[in-house]
């Protein structure tokens, strides 16, 4: 029993630490907005709804921006900046269309506040190609027609970039698992699988 508790990754001590993080976070927001946290109508601590300055390193380019504290990373990318390659589809972490790579890990940009990404390095679909030279995954998606309407495509490609970084020769099952969090309504999955297999071979050859 003791072992399984450890593996769950959430010990009681960490849980309490997590709560502490929330309070510390509120203080950090207060510092940024210049407004003190105050008691809200139901006793919860509420921080002023003023705009907050943050900085994001997007595709190696630094952006300073001022966001509404409610703004998600997705909306900051799309509305406050112009990184519209990252799509909004379900806006609640169910479809994978807003997948970006944050500090080396894929995340769903709709499910993170822009504030929480302050100072982070974000990779989006716009940063993959080198000038006119497409990334091998982008090449392979075009070659195998791994898209129809194309609205899910950026999210799929970002999931696949991350997959191939972790595992450069994935099996078909590993590819399926790698994109299991991304939905495509046009039904292009089999072509996506082919594209990832092809890109993996290209990358292995140094392409």
């Amino acid at each position: 029993m003791g072992d399984s508790n450890q593996k769950s990754g959430m010990s009681r001590r960490n849980f309490i630490k997590g709560l502490g993080g929330g309070i510390a976070g509120a203080t950090a927001i207060a510092a940024k907005t210049g407004k003190a946290a105050q008691e809200g109508p139901h006793g919860a601590m509420v921080v002023g709804a003023g705009p907050v300055k943050i900085s994001l390193l997007i595709n190696s380019k630094k952006h300073e921006l001022t966001v509404d504290p409610r703004t998600t990373l997705l909306d900051a990318l799309r509305n406050d900046l112009d990184y519209t390659g990252t799509k909004r589809v379900c806006n609640k972490g169910q479809c994978g269309a807003c997948t970006v790579i944050l500090n080396g890990k894929t995340i769903l940009a709709c499910s993170m506040l822009a504030l929480d990404a302050d100072g982070a390095s974000v990779e989006t679909i716009e940063g993959l190609a080198q000038g006119n030279k497409l990334h091998p995954l982008q090449e392979a998606f075009v070659k195998h027609d791994a898209m129809q309407c194309g609205f899910c495509t950026p999210g799929f490609i970002m999931s696949c970039v991350s997959l191939l970084r972790e595992n450069n020769q994935p099996t078909l099952d590993e590819i399926k698992n790698g994109v299991a969090g991304n939905l495509c309504r046009c039904g292009t999955y089999p072509n996506i699988f082919k594209a990832v297999e092809d890109a993996a071979t290209t990358i292995k050859k140094g392409g």
Partner: peptide, 18 residues
């Protein structure tokens, strides 16, 4: 291959939402 494939895989393709 589709002519707008490169626009769709790079995020350059602008949809109404964008």
């Amino acid at each position: 291959t589709r002519v707008d494939g490169p626009d769709k895989v790079t995020g350059r393709a602008k949809y109404t939402y964008d």
